[in-house]
Design a protein around this nucleic acid. Sequence first.
RNA 1: CUUGGUCCCUGGACGGCCGCCGGCGGCUUCGGCCGCGGGAGGAAAGUCCGGGCUCCACAGGGCAAGGUGGUGGGCAACGCCCACCGUCCGUGAGGACAGGGAAAGUGCCACAGAGAUCAGACCGCCGGACGGCCUGCGCAAGCGGGCGACGGCAAGGGUGAAACGGUGAGGUAAGAGCUCACCGCGCCCCGGGCGACCGGGGCGGCACGGCAAACCCCACCUGGAGGAAGACCGAAUAGGAGGAUCGCGCGGCCCGCGCUGUGGUCCUCGGGUAGGUCGUUGGAGGCCGUCCGCGAGGGCGGUCCUAGAGAAAUGGCCGUCACCGCCGACGAGGCGGCACCAGAACCCGGCUUACGGGGACCAAGCUUU
RNA 2: UGCCCCGUGGUGUAACGGUAGCACAACAGGUUCUGGUCCUGUUUGUCAAGGUUCAAAUCCUUGCGGGGUAA
Length: 133
Amino acid sequence: MATKADVRLPRARRLLNQHDFRAVYQRGQRAGGQWLTVVALRRRPRAGEAAPTESRLGVSVSKDHGGAVRRNKLKRLLREAFRLERHLLPAGVDVVLIPRQRPENFPLAELRAEVARLVPKALQGGERRRPRP
RNA sequence: CUUGGUCCCUGGACGGCCGCCGGCGGCUUCGGCCGCGGGAGGAAAGUCCGGGCUCCACAGGGCAAGGUGGUGGGCAACGCCCACCGUCCGUGAGGACAGGGAAAGUGCCACAGAGAUCAGACCGCCGGACGGCCUGCGCAAGCGGGCGACGGCAAGGGUGAAACGGUGAGGUAAGAGCUCACCGCGCCCCGGGCGACCGGGGCGGCACGGCAAACCCCACCUGGAGGAAGACCGAAUAGGAGGAUCGCGCGGCCCGCGCUGUGGUCCUCGGGUAGGUCGUUGGAGGCCGUCCGCGAGGGCGGUCCUAGAGAAAUGGCCGUCACCGCCGACGAGGCGGCACCAGAACCCGGCUUACGGGGACCAAGCUUU
RNA sequence: UGCCCCGUGGUGUAACGGUAGCACAACAGGUUCUGGUCCUGUUUGUCAAGGUUCAAAUCCUUGCGGGGUAA
């Protein structure tokens, strides 16, 4: 491969407002693993775009996971897992990662494996869900 | 050495690769790219106080409500800090204290107990003029004992958290500040201290229980809300006000009037939702030196710039060293860990709570010289 | 992030500063052939730590936990 894989994760590749999150939750599809739940939505091409390019990430960590230090750590791990796996995933997908509640620390290798496995599974309609009201 | 007390410091170091956020500079096809340097804490926490800042309210004063409460000082201010005083705790180093007023008033003090604040008399102690009853000795006069009523007393017993001050002596029928000494208490005087208070002397002769984190009184302080404060810009859609023009109706025409859920088109205006910009990072700032001060702290000089997000930036992988644990002899070496409490959201000063490590000084006990 | 409120057995609630009650639940016994109903009895509590007071669920301070509210 001539060019190195793009492993950067700037703000443009993040879900940042309520509008985007609501779209993924309402029309996306879910897949669950033992470390996290994935909600994925194949984004429609914007006007002027031939095909959607960048896949984007959203993270949702509830207060049940503990104090601010532990929650921040979790978000960083989830971002890192997505950052390193993104170029192997289908393009043009909005993904929300929701960690499960577990008492022990989350290993990065496990998170990377589940992201790589669950995102395609969700896109194939593994666990289709009715849109929420 | 052990146990304990006080005060202070600290919260790994260096480097490589891949990323994140914002700053400056350059380039740009305006999407972004490149370079340089910056990027969590001592508690960032709890939100318990005090300020700055913003908006609202406000002539002045009083009342209400809330807070603080030894004295002097520090501070922008404080309920914080320092020094000192008093009381209590500790063998001690030291520690704790909302620590003004209970002779301005109101209220409360359960249970127990005779009596709980205008104190009180159950058991008891004592007295003798009375004379009631019973009774011993005696021939009798009379002498005596017990009970009752009457009177004196509050020492002792007992209750209680607390009983019109404590201990001792004198005194007395028994007693009692009744008297005396000491202590306590109150008042006055003298001396020391800016003061809280301290020391000494005299007098009084006990009168003054506790609770004000009960109401309250006194002194001092406080307007309310909070950065999601607040200021500005502002789509789409819906709706409002004004104007121009066109159409229709009344009318012969102009002017004018009308369009009954107030006609069409265009323009202007203000309000305002989504969203955005500012507020928003340099300050009662840190460090060093020096002077003043017991100290908290202050003056002067020099020097440094130190996060700024908005579904919310500090992460991942790796190496060397330091540190800790285990196996080796605490050595070489090997293996493992790299912590704990915890994450800035307007900013400061404190307090409180959580937590890893280290140092200095001091006390008591033991041991050695 | 700011502001506000609350805390009593397993649950819902009472208690001028003076014995922590009440109802349901739970458990045991009785009644019954068995279960239910009913009767009798028992267990379990002041969120924690300090302070004030003779005495604290109550008053004060600090902490902990839970809830509400402001786009």
